[in-house]
Computed example of a mutant assay.
Amino acid sequence: MARGRKKTAAKKRVAKKATAVVTPAITKANKAVDKANAGIKAATAKVDAANKKLAAARKKAASTKTAAAKKAVVSARAAVAKQKATLAAAKDSARQAKALVSAANVEAKAAAAAAAAKEATIAYEESLVGKAEADLAKALAAYEAKWRKARAKKDAAKVKSRAKKEEAKSKAAAKKAADKLKQLAKPAKKKPAKKKPAKKVAAKKPAKKAAPRRKAAKKAK
Results as ranks from 00 to 15, higher is better:
R77I: 02
Q96L: 08
A90G: 11
A89C: 02
K70G: 05
K60H: 15
V47S: 14
N51P: 01
A115I: 11
A116R: 06
K82G: 09
A108I: 01
A113G: 00
A110Y: 00
R58A: 00
S127Q: 14
K60D: 14
A114P: 02
A116Q: 08
Y143R: 04
Q96F: 01
A68N: 11
A115W: 02
Y124C: 06
A114C: 00
E126R: 12
A55W: 01
A49Y: 08
L136A: 12
V129M: 06
A85Q: 12
A97Q: 02
A112Q: 07
A115F: 01
A99Y: 07
A94V: 04
S63R: 13
V129R: 11
A142C: 06
A61I: 13
K70D: 03
V74S: 13
N105V: 09
S63F: 08
V106W: 03
K53P: 02
A116G: 13
E125R: 08
A56D: 13
N105S: 06
K138Y: 07
G130Q: 10
A79S: 11
S63Y: 09
S63C: 05
E133Q: 13
K146N: 11
K71G: 07
K109L: 15
K82R: 12
L54P: 01
A94E: 07
T121I: 01
A112D: 08
A139W: 02
N105W: 05
N51V: 09
A81D: 15
A137K: 05
A112I: 04
Y143G: 04
A103M: 01
E107N: 05
A78V: 09
A99P: 05
A88C: 04
A103S: 07
A139M: 06
K84R: 15
A115H: 08
A62F: 03
K91F: 08
Y124I: 03
A94H: 01
L87N: 07
A57N: 03
T86H: 12
E144D: 15
A56V: 06
T64L: 12
N51W: 02
L100D: 15
A76H: 10
L100R: 07
A113Q: 08
K146R: 09
K65V: 08
A142R: 06
